[in-house]
Design a protein around this nucleic acid. Structure first.
Lengths: 202, 202
DNA sequence: TTAAATTTTGAGCAACCGCTCAATTGGAGG
DNA sequence: CCTCCAATTGAGCGGTTGCTCAAAATTTAA
C-alpha cells in the first residue's frame, strides 16, 4: 500500500445522500456532488466508479439508516404496535426540520428511475422489499404476544403499512397538512370502535 | 388571420403527456418532445412558450382526464362506495397495459419537482387538492344516502383515499404484486368484520 | 533517501441541454 | 391573382452534462 484516501468516506456519503435525497438522481449533477464533497471529479470516479455507482451506494446508506431508526423505535417500546406507531410518528412528524425531503428516498427513486436504469431500479425494489420484511417481522411478534389475532396475515399487513407510509409522506409533501397526517396515523393504529365512530369506511 | 396551426393540438397533448408520464419532467428532453410530436422546436415554442409551459398544460390535461374517468366510474354505479371502488380497480388493475407508468403523473411531479420550480409545484398541488375534493364530494353523497354514518369526517376520509391510491400505485411499481393490491382494495372497501378477520390492525 | 504505488488535481472533451431567430412556407382575405 | 401575416423550418448558440487522463502530489516500504 502506497497511499490512502484523505477524505472521510462516511462524511462524503452523508453529504451526497442528502443531495440526492433533496434533488433526486437525475437532477443532481456531478458538479453538485463535487461542490458538496469538495472533491475533484477524478477522486469521486476513482472511489465510486460512476454517478450510478455512487447512487447505488447512497441507496444502501439510506436504507441502512432507516432500518436502524426502526430498530431503535422498536427497542424503545414494549408494545410492538406502539413501536411501529412511534416509527410512523418519527418519520412523518418529528423528522429533522432540515431534512432534505418529506419523501422516502427509495420511493423517490422508484418514481424517477426508468427501466433503462435497471441496476438502480432493481436495487431500490430490493431495499423496499427488505424494509417490508422488517415490518412483517414485528407484526409476527405482535401476533405471537397476542397484540394481534392469530389469523393476522402478516405479509399483507406489512404491505399495507408500507403503502400507508409512502402515501402519507407523499401527501405531506403535497399538502404540508401535518394535523391531517397526525389524525391518519391515529386511526391507523387505533382500535376499531374509535375509527368507525370517526368515519373510516370500515 | 392569415395562417392556422397545421398540427392537431389534442393529439400533440396526448403524445407529450404520455412521454412526460413515462420519463418525468426533467428526464424528458425537448429533443424527445420534438421527435414524439414530429414538430420543429420553433413550432413547440410558439405554441407552448417553454418546456415548463408545456408541462403545465400537460398537468391540466392529465388531471382533467383522470377526473373524467372518476366521473364515469361514479355514473356507472348506483352505490357511491361501489363507484369509488370501481375507480380504484380501474386505475390500479385495469389500466391500459401500455400505460406509460404505474404511478400517478401528479404524484410523480410532486416527487421530482423542487422548490425552485415553484409554478409547476404549486399547480400540481392544486390539482391534487382538486381531485381530493372530488373524492370528498362523493363521500358526502354516500353519507347523505346512508351508505356511511352521519358522523363521517368526509375531508379526512377523502384524504385517506388519496393516500391509499398514491401509496398503492407506488407499491405496484415497486413490486408488480397485483394480487396484493387486489386484496388491499378489497379490504379498503369491505365491511369491518371481514377486515378484522383477515388481519387488519383495526 | 529513494522507489514504487496510489491518490489528487483540474483542464477539457464529446455529447447533449433548452431555446432563438432569420429565412421560408402556405393559407385566407381582397 | 397578389398581399399579408402567422406558422414552420432548421441551423446553431451558449451553457451544462457525465466523465477522462496525463501530470503532480502524497504516502509507505525498503
Amino acid at each position: 500500500m502506497a497511499n490512502t484516501a484523505k477524505f472521510d468516506r462516511q462524511k462524503v456519503m452523508d453529504k451526497v445522500t442528502r443531495l440526492f435525497w433533496q434533488k433526486g438522481f437525475h437532477s443532481t449533477s456531478t458538479r453538485d456532488l463535487q461542490q458538496a464533497t469538495n472533491l475533484r471529479p477524478g477522486s469521486i470516479y476513482a472511489a465510486f466508479g460512476s454517478k450510478s455507482g455512487l447512487f447505488e451506494e447512497v441507496l444502501d446508506f439510506y436504507a441502512q439508516n432507516r432500518n436502524e431508526l426502526l430498530e431503535r423505535c422498536m427497542a424503545g417500546e414494549e408494545v410492538r404496535l406502539g413501536g411501529l406507531r412511534a416509527f410512523f410518528h418519527l418519520i412523518l412528524l418529528e423528522e429533522d426540520p432540515d431534512a432534505p425531503n418529506e419523501l422516502c428516498l427509495l420511493a423517490k427513486a422508484i418514481s424517477e428511475l426508468d427501466e433503462s436504469e435497471e441496476a438502480l431500479l432493481k436495487k431500490t425494489r430490493a431495499l423496499l422489499a427488505a424494509h417490508g420484511a422488517r415490518f412483517r417481522h414485528y407484526i409476527e411478534e405482535a401476533t405471537a404476544t397476542g397484540e394481534l389475532p392469530e389469523s393476522t396475515d402478516s405479509i399483507l399487513l406489512a404491505q399495507q403499512l408500507q403503502v400507508q407510509l409512502i402515501g402519507l409522506r407523499t401527501f405531506l409533501r403535497a399538502t404540508d397538512n401535518r394535523s391531517a397526517v397526525e389524525q391518519m396515523i391515529e386511526q391507523l393504529f387505533n382500535p376499531v370502535v374509535k375509527s368507525v365512530a370517526s368515519g373510516k369506511i370500515h
